[in-house]
C-alpha cells in the first residue's frame, strides 16, 4: 500500500436552521492514497458535496459547522490550518471541478483572464505575464480544445457545455495539484460528450500522477473512473472496496437496491427500487440510517450504529448482516 495523501476521520457536520440542527454528516471515514482514484457514489442529498467542501474548507459557515473529526492532508490537519496556509493548499495542493461549468466560470471575464489568474496565484514562484499566458494556452491545448489561442480570448458563453467543462478541467489542473476533487463533472453533459471528458480526465490524471476523489451518482461512471469506491448514504459511508471487488460482490442492502434499480443494457426489466426516500436530517433515524427503508432490517439496526467491518479482502461494510474483524 502506498503513502496516504488524504485521510478523513469521523467527520461530523451540522447545519443550523430555524427548525433546529440538520445532522448531515454522521462520521465519514475515507482515505486516499497517493496516485489513487477514489470514487464516492450516492444519491442526491447524501452529503457527497458537503464532504468535499469540508476538505477545501469552503463550507458556508454559518449555517454549516464541523462539529467533530479530522481531515489530514499529508498528516497535517486541514481543519486547524490558518487562512494563509489554506490558501496555499487550495493553490497547488487541492483543486476542484464543479458540476455545472456554466456557474463555475465568471461570465464577464474571458477564459484567458480566468485561467491566467489561477496560474498566477496558484503556482510556486513568480512568473512573467508572458510566461503565464504561454502556460495558460498550453493547458488549454492539453485538454484538447480546438484552436486554444481563440478559446483564450473567448467568453464562457461562446463555448458549449462540454468545452466549458474542459476549461474548468484546464483550470483545476493548471497548478498541478496533488489531489483533484471532481464533483459530478459530467452530470450536465450528454453521454457522448461525457465519454470524451471522462477519457480526457483519466488520461491527464494518469500523466500527472494526480490523486482524485470523483463524486458521482452514477455507478456506471464510477466503474470507469475509480480504483476504489465508497458508497455513501445519508451522511455515512456504508460500503467501501476496491472497484473490482465491489462490482463483483455487493454487500450492503442499499448498494444492492441501487444496483437492482439501475436499468441495464441487457434488459430484463427494472426491479421495484428502494421504498421511501432519503431521511430528513432534522430528525434522522436512530441506529443505521438506512433501517427504515431496508428490506433486511433487524431489531438491532434501529438501536445502534453498525460498526465498519472488514467483510472480505479489502472490502469494508457498515451493516449488522456481516460479521468480520472490526476496525478497532
Amino acid at each position: 500500500m502506498g503513502e496516504t495523501l488524504l485521510e478523513i476521520g469521523n467527520l461530523h457536520v451540522e447545519f443550523k436552521v430555524y427548525e433546529g440542527r440538520l445532522r448531515v454528516l454522521n462520521g465519514v471515514n475515507l482515505s486516499v492514497q497517493v496516485g489513487e482514484r477514489v470514487g464516492l457514489v450516492g444519491e442526491a442529498g447524501c452529503g457527497k458535496t458537503t464532504t468535499m467542501k469540508c476538505v477545501l474548507k469552503i463550507l458556508t459557515s454559518p449555517p454549516g459547522k464541523i462539529t467533530e473529526g479530522k481531515i489530514l492532508l499529508h498528516d497535517k490537519d486541514v481543519l486547524t490550518m490558518g487562512s494563509q496556509e489554506m490558501q496555499r493548499v487550495r493553490g497547488h495542493g487541492i483543486s476542484m471541478i464543479f458540476q455545472d461549468p456554466t456557474a463555475a466560470l465568471n461570465p464577464v471575464f474571458t477564459v484567458g483572464d480566468q485561467l491566467m489568474s489561477v496560474i498566477k496565484y496558484g503556482s510556486k514562484g513568480s512568473l512573467s505575464k508572458k510566461e503565464i499566458k504561454k502556460r495558460a494556452i498550453g493547458t488549454l491545448r492539453e485538454v484538447r480544445l480546438p484552436d486554444p489561442e481563440r478559446i483564450f480570448t473567448n467568453y464562457p458563453v461562446q463555448l458549449s457545455g462540454g468545452m466549458r467543462q474542459r476549461v474548468c478541467i484546464a483550470m483545476a489542473l493548471s497548478t498541478e495539484p496533488e489531489l483533484l476533487l471532481a464533483d459530478e463533472p459530467t452530470t450536465s453533459l450528454d453521454v457522448t460528450i461525457q465519454d470524451q471528458v471522462l477519457r480526457l480526465l483519466n488520461e491527464l490524471v494518469e500523466r500527472h500522477g494526480t490523486s482524485v476523489i470523483f463524486i458521482t451518482h452514477s455507478l456506471g461512471v464510477v466503474r470507469e473512473m475509480a480504483d476504489r469506491v465508497y458508497v455513501m448514504y445519508a451522511g455515512n459511508i456504508i460500503e467501501g472496496a476496491r472497484k473490482e471487488e465491489l462490482f463483483a460482490n455487493w454487500l450492503h442492502p442499499y448498494t444492492l437496491g441501487l444496483m437492482n434499480a439501475l436499468p441495464k443494457l441487457t434488459g430484463g426489466g427494472i426491479a421495484e427500487g428502494i421504498p421511501g426516500r432519503i431521511p430528513e436530517y432534522l430528525d434522522p433515524p436512530s441506529g443505521c440510517r438506512f433501517h427504515p427503508r431496508c428490506p433486511r432490517a433487524m431489531q438491532q439496526c434501529s438501536q445502534s450504529i453498525p460498526p465498519v467491518v472488514h467483510a472480505a479482502d479489502d472490502h469494508d461494510v457498515a451493516c449488522f448482516l456481516y460479521r468480520g474483524e472490526t476496525d478497532e
Binding site: V191, D195, L219, K264, L265
Partner: peptide, 14 residues
C-alpha cells in the same frame, strides 16, 4: 453505435 459505446455500464454482461 457511438451512443451505445459511450454509455457507462455496471456489469460485464452489459
Amino acid at each position: 453505435k457511438m451512443l451505445l459505446s459511450s454509455i457507462p455500464v455496471v456489469l460485464p454482461e452489459e
